[in-house]
Structures are given as C-alpha cells and as structure tokens.
Design a protein around this nucleic acid. Structure first.
Length: 453
RNA sequence: GGCGGCGUGGCCGAGUGGUUUAGGCAAGGGCCUGCAAAGCCCUCUACCCGGGUUCGAUUCCCGGCGCCGCCUCCA
C-alpha cells in the first residue's frame, strides 16, 4: 500500500483512494509566460514517476494538470513583446509540451485551461460573496481570510504569524493584508471577461479549485505541486473550498527544488537552465535517472557533474540491455524475480523512496551480469528482464533502438574482424582507431566486433 | 521574528538503537581480453559539535553551530 508524505498532516500516511483502484490526482501545472526551466522538468518527472508506478501496480490514474493561460505575468510578457496575451500563452504552452514530450513524460489525462473556466470561476466567486466570505473592493473581489476556519492548516502558518509577517504589503483595497484577490478588475487594454464586479480576470488561486472539483469531484485523492505552492497558492485554494463547505483534496504532496550552488533555482533569481537547453545536450533518460536517485522532497543539485554521473549509470543499464538484447516490452515477457519486485515495491511504497528502488535495480543489474559471466544464462535472463521491467515501471526505458550503422562503418567492422581472425593486430587496432574517429565505441565480443555511438 | 527541512565515506545519496551489507559515480588493485571496451571480484566504510537517555546512539531527547525553503511572483 502506497504511503506518501502528506503536507497537511506533516507526516507520511497511507493513501487510501476515494474509489479502490482508481487514483484522482490534480497536479498544478504551468503559467505559460516563459520557457520551462529544469525545475519544471523535475516537477513533471516526479509526478510522471508517481503516475507510472501507480499504473504499473495496476491502478487507474486520472491525472488532471492545468495550464494557467491568463495571469499578470502573461499580460506583462505580452506588453514586453508587443503581442496579444493569448498568443503569448499559446506559444509558451507549445514550448512546454514539446519539452515534456522530449522528457518522456506522459501527457495528463485532462488539461484544463483557466480561460475555459472563467464563467465557472465567476460563479464560485459569486457564491463566496453571497456567503459573506468574500467582498467587493475598489479594484476587485477579495477573500476575507479571517472568515475561513482552519486557514493556515495546510502550510502550518497560523493566521497571526502571517499578519506579523513584515513582507505583506499594505494594500488600500484589502480589508486585511492577508486577504487575496479572487477577481481583478481589468485596467485599460487588459484582457477581460464579464462579471458582476465589472470586466476583469480571475485571481490565480481560484482556477485550480474550480477545475479540480469539476474534473475530479469533491474529495479527490491527491493535490500536488512544488514546495513553494504550499503557501499561498494551495492554502488559498483550500480556503475557498472550505469556505463553500466543499470537500477538497484528501492528500497534499509537494516536491523539493532543483538547486544551483545550494540555492533554489527560480525565475526571480535568474539562475536557471531551460529545459530545452538541458535536453539539447543530455539524454532525457539521464535526467530522469538523476531525479530518481534523490528523494522527491530533497533538494537536488543539477550540475554537469551530477548529470554526467547519472549518464554513467544509464550507460550500464544500456550495456545490460545490449548484452541481453532487452527491449522495452509490456510486462509478462519474462518472469521477473519476485523477491526483487517485493523489495522494489516496498521502497516505492515508502513515500516513493526512488533512491532505494534504484539501488534494487542496480543490484539486480550486477547479479544479472555475474550470472551471465558464470554461464547461468536462464537465471541471468530472468534477472535482466527484471531490471528492464522495474526500470520501465519508472519510465526509464533501457535498451532503446540500436544505432544505424552506415555502410562504410560496417565495412570497417568487417575488415577489423578479418584482421583479428588473421591475428593482424596492428591492422585491427588501426581500424579501431578509424571507427573511434567516426564517433563509434568499439567492443569485441564472442561474435566479433560490435559498434555503437 | 514565525513555521518547516537538512547536515552520512573523494562526490552524489538511502537507511537503521547494536549484530552482514544500502546503491550509484569516481579512484586503486585483480580476473577476463592479442590490447582495449564491456562485465565480474576486491579495496577505500561514514554518519556536524556538545550534553543527556541507554548495557549500547549516526539513529531517540536537549542545546549549539552551519546551510536551505516558505511567510502572497515562484515547480
């Protein structure tokens, strides 16, 4: 049974789904005003790994992830580049999905957009106003945080401590500095939708409430996002649902940050690498393995050194796949090792302890090679198949398609084999150098020379 | 100031009140190989500091030091 760290609870707890065998998950998606950085890459990998693992266990996963396509940042960016906001949003959303496809991340089951839900949001805000929890002000509508019992319980920030927080800006329009905007009246030139409070746009915290409840229903299983969304975003979502007396997420899960030199990577610090840049120079699987090797709640350093480290590990997996001619295939092709499967699921069930799960995979890898060296081919095959099965359950595909060998290189391989048969090692070494110069890695096996990139 | 987290071997990174060890990368030695590569075997073996609890603490408690995150832009 899967156990996860629940942010509201502050502890690891058993995840009991609303409906047995069916997990409803809402993942806070991107605001599409800029290119995604590798921190976003970590986010989507964390939830891709969770989803794939659940599906591998046999659960049905309904994975909803929103796109915020109207927001202050998008408007600002649109003004900077002199384009309409919707065009800016469409552009960056396209960049986002392209990057995710390259990362090998599954698309969500449903992708709602904020702009598709404005009418529903207006309705929800209206209910909050009718209940006296929200109020209209000079520039929009705000939620009166004091009126929500239990505000601060998700982030463990008592209201008093928030009031004391010196960073809260005093805003004339708000009755209390901790109140937050549900509806923002449009300034001239800004995109606007009709509402009882004048033309404008919804505040950020409302869309996820409306969309998650609409697509997953009350009491859905899991709401997730980055640690920085705990407060205020998720706290404020929760406040709206509670103010309406609607059951919201059963569990909350938050992941840690990608760091650079010990500091959080973020747009505001400007210390980010874009996901596209990373993918241009790194095997996407190496990035996934790098993420898998640390726990999802821990900070992680992404540097050329840590990526190279993961790449080396990945190469061992690929070498195993070559040795056993493994192909990524649906489970069942070879009977996996039950004891290893058990240790693997034990690790994963323990709050997604992927480092321990990866350790199981690498131990199997070593044992598979050792068994093959000892001539125990059946046993070795079984272990190797388990490696492919378990790695695959985390979205780590080993044994991908072979390299296309051009005719000239193939001819060089043949000449090298001939030279080696003739024990003309000087010629064989020269041919190897030639192949190396063409970018091939040359390996001699029992069946002769083989090359790969 | 409030709340939360972290400090493990050359590096990354799990975990545990003691007895057998995470795992990966790197390094060194060996086996294999015509030489390599790949693979296997071996070695390097640690828990920030001080106090407490305990027969015994890296693991629990208290204090300290250092680092990080959130406190309404943020994955």
């Amino acid at each position: 049974m899967l156990r996860l760290h629940d942010t509201a609870l502050g502890a690891v707890t058993e995840i009991v789904p609303r409906e047995p065998g069916r997990l409803s998950i809402y993942v806070c998606g991107p605001t599409v005003y800029d290119v995604p950085h590798i921190g976003h890459g970590r986010q989507v990998l964390v939830y891709d790994i969770l989803r794939r693992y659940l599906e591998w266990l046999g659960a049905e996963v309904v994975h909803v992830s929103n796109v915020t396509d109207i927001d202050d940042q998008i408007i600002r960016r649109a003004q900077e580049v002199g384009r309409p906001p919707d065009e800016v949003a469409r552009h960056y959303e396209e960049v986002y999905w392209d990057a995710l496809d390259r990362l090998g991340v599954l698309r969500p089951t449903v992708v709602p957009h904020a702009t598709e839900y404005v009418a529903d949001m207006v309705e929800l805000i209206g209910e909050l106003v009718a209940r006296g929890v929200a109020y209209e002000s000079s520039d929009g509508v705000y939620l009166s945080v004091e009126k929500v019992d239990g505000y601060g319980q998700l982030s463990h920030q008592p209201l008093q401590s928030l009031r004391a927080g010196a960073r809260v800006e005093v805003d004339e329009a708000k009755r209390s500095p901790v109140d937050f905007a549900l509806w923002k009246q449009a300034k001239p030139g800004e995109p606007a939708w009709p509402s009882p409070w004048g033309p404008g746009r919804p505040g950020w915290h409302t869309e996820c409430v409306v969309m998650s409840l609409d697509l997953l229903g009350e009491d859905f299983d899991l709401h997730t996002g980055g640690l920085d969304l705990v407060f205020p975003h998720h706290e404020n979502e929760r406040a709206q649902a509670m103010a309406l007396g609607r059951r919201f997420a059963r569990h909350w899960m938050h992941h840690g940050f990608v760091e650079v030199a010990g500091e959080k990577m973020s747009k505001s610090l400007g210390n980010f690498t874009t996901l596209v840049d990373l993918l241009d120079r790194t095997d996407a699987r190496a990035y996934r393995l790098l993420m898998l090797r640390s726990h999802y709640r821990s900070p992680i350093e992404v540097t050329p050194a840590t990526i190279a480290d993961a790449q080396s590990g990945l190469e061992r997996l690929d070498a195993l796949a070559r040795r056993f001619e493994l192909r990524v295939s649906p489970s069942g092709s070879a009977a996996p090792d039950p004891e290893a499967i058990e240790r693997f699921t034990e690790a994963m069930d323990n709050d997604l302890d992927t480092p321990a799960a990866v350790a199981v995979i690498f131990e199997l890898l070593r044992r598979a090679n050792a068994a093959a060296d000892a001539g125990e081919s059946e046993h070795a095959r079984r272990l190797a198949a388990t490696v492919a099965e378990l790695a695959g359950s985390l979205g780590l595909e080993v044994g991908q398609v072979g390299d296309d060998v051009d005719d000239e290189s193939a001819a060089l391989v043949e000449r090298r084999d001939a030279a080696r048969r003739a024990r003309d090692f000087a010629a064989a070494d020269a041919l190897r150098d030639e192949l190396t110069a063409r970018g091939w890695v040359v390996e001699d096996g029992p069946q002769g020379t083989s090359i790969r990139r």
